[in-house]
Design a protein around this nucleic acid. Structure first.
Length: 211
DNA sequence: AGGACGATTAACT
DNA sequence: GTTAATCGTCCTC
């Protein structure tokens, strides 16, 4: 059973830490793959210069301005797809980029989709790799994560953030680089290496955000 | 109509 | 550490 839509109806900064440890499942082409999310980034729509939604809705970003609980997939660098969870209330373009995870089911399928992956931890280490392992792309853009018949859904979503969470600047952006809106679980092999844009690591113990 | 660039990855030196 | 690959999207003319 998918997670109820109202669970996604919160701001990206509050949803992002809760997505750490969540299990996302995709069933595309009859093949099922599940991933435990270990790294995410929050994007705040029209308030966030790094967000695709910053300059208002376009055909590509329209899904982010709608109700929560949908998948926003976008194509980048001429060859890769990345996937976001649309959150926040209807009309507010809030979303969380899924940056990395650990494959917990369908590893052989994931490996067949990611032939370049040398080890299991590389299967979903990075946003485009995660999308590729789960076959998220043009076909799943706009997928309703809360529809029981959907090809993509969350099997679990922690009601509280993990006990220990790290945060730091987001990766691969050129604006708002000092906003610590990237979140990851410590000691996870699937979390991509830190890249230019920030060297600091802020360890948060205890719970993050509001209940 | 044209062009710059990107929420990246893999394969190099 | 560096760089090619590759094309949809969006901005400018």
């Amino acid at each position: 059973m998918p997670v109820a839509r109202e669970r996604f109806g919160i701001d990206s900064l509050r949803l992002a830490p809760r997505l750490l440890g969540a299990v996302l499942v995709s069933e595309v082409g009859g093949e099922r793959v599940a991933v435990r999310i270990t790294e995410v980034e929050a994007y705040a729509g029209t308030d966030d210069p790094a967000s695709h939604a910053f300059r208002g809705p376009t055909p590509r970003t329209a899904i982010m301005f709608g109700p929560p609980g949908f998948l926003y997939c976008y194509f980048t660098y001429g060859m890769h797809w990345c996937a976001n969870v649309v959150c926040g209330r209807d009309g507010v373009a809030s979303a969380v980029l899924l940056r990395a995870g650990e494959i917990v089911a369908g590893e052989a399928v994931a490996q067949s989709r990611r032939p370049a992956a040398k080890t299991a931890r590389d299967l979903a280490r990075g946003p485009a790799r995660l999308a590729s392992a789960l076959a998220l792309g043009r076909e799943t853009d706009g997928a309703d994560l809360c529809d029981p018949a959907s090809a993509v859904w969350f099997e679990s979503l922690p009601s509280r953030p993990a006990r220990e969470i790290c945060s730091g600047p987001r990766v691969g952006i050129s604006v708002a680089t000092d906003w610590p809106w990237r979140f990851w679980l410590p000691n996870e092999p699937s979390v991509s290496a830190f890249k230019p844009g920030g060297r600091k690591r802020v360890v948060t113990t205890g719970q993050t955000g509001q209940p």
